[in-house]
Each structure stands twice: as C-alpha cells, then as structure tokens.
Amino acid sequence: MSSRRDFLQKISLSAAVIPFLSAKSVAATKDDKPYDGPILRVAILGLGSYGTRVADAMQSCKKAKLVGAISGTPSKLTAWQSKYGIPEKNCYNYETYDAIKNNPDIDAVYIITPNALHKEAAMRVAKAGKHVISEKPMSINAKDAQEMVDACKKAGVKLLVGYRMHYEPKTLEVIRMRNAGEFGKVLFFQGLSGFIIGDPTQWRLNKALSGGGAMMDIGIYSVNGARYMIGEEPIWVTAQEVKTNPEKFKEGIDETITFQLGFPGGAVASCLSTYSLNNLDKFFLDGDKGFAEMQPSTGYGPIQGHTHKGELTQPHITHQTLQMDGMSELIFEGIQPVVPVDGEEAVKDLKIIDAIFEAIKTGKKVALKL
C-alpha cells in the first residue's frame, strides 16, 4: 500500500437518518467564525498508511470527526486511541464490529482495506445501520459493486466513495471552465497514471485481494478522470496490455494497459495505466477553443496546472479534509458535489474497467452502456 501512496505524495440518508453530534466550536472557518452544525462521526476500518492519512486530514475537518477505529491488529487500535483520542468503547476488531449497530457515537464507517474486502465490510456496516464510505475502486467488479449499492439502499444508508479529486479546487475550476464553454467543443483527453511499484509480496499484486494490478489501483484515476474532465459518459472502449515482467506481475495482475474511450459528443480519450513507469500523473484536455493541462493531476498535492488562459491558482487544501467535510454536507444537508461521489458513480467506473479487461481478452471494441 505504501508504494503508491508514497509515490503520489512525492509527486505532488437517505431514508434513515442516524443521530449526529452538534458541536459549537469544532474548528474555525476561513473567516474565523466557529462552525455550529451537524458533525459526521466516522470510524475508520483498516488502519494502514492511507487510513492514517485520512485520520490525520480529519483533524482539520469542520464537519466531520474521527471517533472510532476498526482493525485486526490490537497494537494499532491502542496506538490510535492514544494518537487521536478515540475512546476504547469505539474500537473494534474485524470479528466484533457488527456491534457498531448499538453504538450511537458512530454515524459512518470508512472502509480502507484491500479492494476484494470492501463488499463484505460494506454489507456488514449497512446491516448495522451506519453510512458506508468505501475507498476506490469500490469493489473488484461492477456486479459486486451493484450489490453494495443495492444493500445500502435496502438498509436506508448512504454509500459514498473516496473520490477526493471531486472536491479538489483546481480540478473543479477546469470543470467549471468546460461547463462554461471556455474550451469550446471538447475533442480529446489524455490521462497518464502510473508509477513503479515496489514490494512484490504486497496485497496489490495479489489478485485475490486486489482484483487486478495497476488498473485497479492507479489506472482508475484516468478512467474516472476521463469522465469528469470530458463531462460525458463513454460509449465504447478498446484496450491493449503489455507485460514485461511476468514473474512480478503474475496472471491476472496487469502491469501496463493502454486504453481508449469514445464519447457521444465525438471526443476521444487516450489513457495509460502502469506499475512500471514513474513520472506519470498527467491530465490533458483539449477543445477547439482552449485546453487544460494538469501535472500532478491526481497526487496528494498540491495539484499544478494551467489552461490557455493561464496558471491555475486555486489554493491547496488537503484533499481528504475537503472530501470528509463534503461528505458530511452530503449526508446531513443534501449538498451534492459537482461530480458525484456515490456508489452509482463507482459502479460506472467498474463497468468501464470490466470492459477494458474484456477488450484486452477479445481484442475487440467493447460497447458501453452506463
């Protein structure tokens, strides 16, 4: 897990409403006015490197608060209790966390575990009556992802996904410019997502846990980015795979994939996902009246970029802080982000990834219906 995270760091209820905590002075806003409103109280499931990153970022949230932890490692639970001031009664292991059903202090659980474990955890959290936040990809295929969506709807809880870029200011400015017609007719998108992965024994190179290789990790940024940058849903995909190290990247673990997406307005996306090349974190959007280029485009920040009108100067704010505050607004106030962060959004990405794998297997263009 640390390889991708380290790399990115360096280059850059629905029907049932769960009780919430009101705090008069959790944090000050930019104009120094204290926030007085609902606080989304979150337990993190999976206390690895990214779970720690989210926990650290939440210390700056105004509308979300870390209140619980779930882990299979007792020493991690003890450390988090001390570091983040989490009460022992809000700490669980993987066998006992169904008991959150009876814990009114927890509103939502953020699942940050290997991809293949997201579904089971989401089902259990939903059954316990708590909102579900899942890291991306939401599951290992679209079928499982849809079952997660259905289970959360049945339980009357929200299902949200850790699409932090959907809250990132420079990204939102490019989307605003596109919506305003400042690029003219969008014709082309390029997404380059990759890095050299390290430890060959890590779970990301274990198909049973990851569901795939680079595409299920870094490649999803270009899949999702093509959609929100162009502003349409693709209607077809073609793809090719290259594997130079079959010892490290075994059967079912993709090393490098190039893929192309076609959009109903005529735009084409050309993207690359790899575990074998560094310095790949770039988006380029081109229209007949202008362009936007971002590099780094999806790293932890600061994101950098420019358009035909000049440099993007929006301030850098920790992505996960913005994300968690935004998710609190969505759950309690119904405020939707410009680009969705719900389970249905994640199902679309996984339908595209499923089709990419099919295109590689068959060598044919695969039609998409999202």
Rank of each mutant, 00 (worst) to 15 (best):
D36C: 08
D105V: 03
E293C: 08
T73G: 10
G184E: 08
E311M: 11
T171W: 02
N278C: 11
A16P: 00
N93P: 02
K364Y: 04
S193E: 13
L45W: 05
T274P: 06
L330T: 00
A69P: 02
M165V: 02
S270C: 01
K361P: 09
D217R: 11
G213K: 12
E233Q: 15
L77P: 02
A69L: 03
I235H: 07
I140R: 11
P114S: 07
A142K: 11
K101F: 02
V161Q: 05
L277K: 14
V54Y: 00
S276L: 01
E120I: 10
K369E: 15
M148W: 04
F284Y: 10
I11Y: 14
F357D: 14
M216N: 15
Q9G: 15
P114K: 07
A269P: 08
K153N: 07
W80Q: 05
N103M: 06
I70Q: 00
P246S: 07
E120K: 14
P169R: 03
Q320I: 00
D144V: 01
H118C: 09
K89L: 11
A43T: 03
I257K: 10
Y50T: 12
G225M: 08
G184F: 08
S22T: 13
I360V: 15
V149S: 03
E329T: 05
D31K: 08
L45R: 04
R227S: 01
D105A: 13
P104K: 12
E182R: 15
S49H: 12
Y221T: 07
F284N: 01
P87N: 12
L322I: 06
D325M: 00
L159W: 01
E168R: 11
V67F: 08
K89P: 01
P38M: 00
L45F: 05
G72L: 11
G198K: 15
A142I: 10
E241D: 07
W203F: 14
V157P: 03
F332S: 02
E120V: 11
V338L: 12
Q59I: 00
V341I: 14
G301E: 04
G184A: 13
G225L: 02
P114T: 10
N141I: 11
R176W: 07
K351T: 08
Q295N: 14
I133D: 00
K30A: 06
H319I: 01
L117S: 10
V109W: 09
A79S: 11
L280C: 13
G265N: 14
K153R: 12
S22H: 14
K153T: 02
D288F: 06
I335M: 09
K127D: 12
K136E: 11
K89N: 14
N115K: 13
I317M: 04
P296D: 06
K33T: 15
I86A: 05
G334I: 04
V149T: 09
K10N: 12
F263E: 08
K170R: 14
V42P: 00
A355N: 09
K364V: 00
R5P: 00
I257R: 03
K130I: 01
L40T: 04
K369S: 14
R124I: 03
T96I: 01
I257G: 06
A121C: 12
S82K: 14
S297R: 04
S22A: 04
S14R: 08
Y167C: 01
E311W: 08
T244W: 01
D325N: 08
S14F: 03
K76R: 13
P34E: 12
